[in-house]
């Protein structure tokens, strides 16, 4: 990748007299290049400063933590006697997000394939707009719908899973009113439009030459999609999933409404049929108590973990995309 310098190569070409017009810059190039550089720097600065803020506020509280921050399930950030650990919160956050992705990624990719490869043109456009509209629904609506309307329909299913597979830690009872399972499904619906829209864009860009090449070899429609469309869109689908995952990890209000909270001091549990709190909903639920720097620091430490988690996930995605870069 070349860097933006605000100078075009034309500027290095010798003029009629043979001298390179060094230092001479076109105003448009300078302005545009400067603006592009500036916005790049601003974004990096915002991310870096967020990290610095989280770290400086979290570290004092982390040092005063009386229990292990990573392995404890306690959360009693009393000033002077800080006891807080993220194990349960991390598990809940990851569980809900993983579940949302398990549902939303295949569904979004299939959706995008339908819209770009199968649907007739008169249907593709309106259908795409409808899916985009899902992204415009506020989270609070998803939250209320999830717990009031959707959750009751899942009572039977959750009970059946618990009856049959209750011996497995993931499906242990007692079943809460608002479970990780329900939240995962609602979250899947929320991230679906992001994954669908971005996947649709990349699939639509598949060069006709590649698709015809596959068809001319005697590929069926599905084989053509597998040979030409999916490999072409792979990197885009990974990026789309990462954006979706970012939304899932950070979603606050819908999760806060749907997932039942758990009594403080409960031992660690893995069940997806119980409640819990994610990083974001933990912070939201306790926003009223940010009155002391040391207890606030505990919540900021939780935010820091979420921040790092997002970074790690994105880094993994980059590695996946770049691994076969020569073939892209």
């Amino acid at each position: 990748m070349s860097s933006i310098t605000g100078r075009s190569t034309v500027d290095q070409v010798p003029g009629p007299t043979g001298d390179v017009p060094r230092g001479r810059r076109r105003l448009g190039d300078t302005l545009f290049g400067g603006a592009a550089n500036l916005s790049g720097v601003v974004v990096i600065a915002i991310v870096a400063l967020t990290g610095v803020f989280l770290a400086t506020r979290a570290v004092p509280s982390l040092l005063d933590d009386k229990v292990n921050f990573l392995t404890s399930t306690e959360w009693v950030p009393e000033p002077g006697n800080l006891r807080f650990g993220i194990l349960q919160i991390l598990w809940t956050t990851v569980s809900i997000s993983v579940m949302a992705m398990i549902i939303a990624v295949p569904l979004g990719v299939l959706n995008a394939l339908f819209l770009t490869q199968y649907a007739p043109r008169w249907l593709a456009r309106p259908a795409a707009s409808v899916i985009d509209l899902l992204a415009a629904i506020p989270s609070i609506v998803y939250g209320l719908w999830g717990i009031q309307v959707f959750a009751p329909h899942l009572t039977g299913l959750q009970k059946a899973v618990n009856d049959g597979l209750g011996w497995f830690p993931l499906f242990e009872g007692p079943i809460s009113a608002g479970t990780i399972f329900i939240a995962g499904i609602v979250l899947a619906i929320m991230v679906l439009p992001i994954i669908t829209a971005l996947s649709r864009e990349v699939f639509a860009q598949t060069p006709a030459a590649n698709k015809e090449g596959a068809l001319a070899l005697g590929a069926t429609k599905w084989e053509m999609i597998r040979t030409a469309v999916l490999p072409f869109g792979r990197a885009g689908v990974v990026s789309a999933s990462m954006l979706g995952l970012g939304r899932a990890l950070g979603e606050t209000i819908a999760i806060t409404i749907i997932v039942s909270s758990v009594a403080p001091g409960t031992d660690f549990f893995a069940s997806w049929l119980q409640g819990g709190e994610t990083f974001a909903s933990k912070i939201a639920n306790n926003a009223a108590e940010f009155n002391d720097p040391s207890s606030t620091g505990a919540y900021i430490a939780a935010g820091l973990v979420l921040f790092v988690l997002t970074f790690v996930v994105n880094a993994i995605a980059r590695v996946i995309v770049n691994r076969r870069k020569a073939f892209a």
Binding site: A209, E212, A216
Partner: peptide, 17 residues
């Protein structure tokens, strides 16, 4: 198309392969 093969104007090898 499995019996009658085709080569196109622009070379179109599958880019990811």
């Amino acid at each position: 198309r499995r019996t009658v093969g085709m080569v196109f104007q622009r070379p179109n090898p599958f880019p990811t392969m």
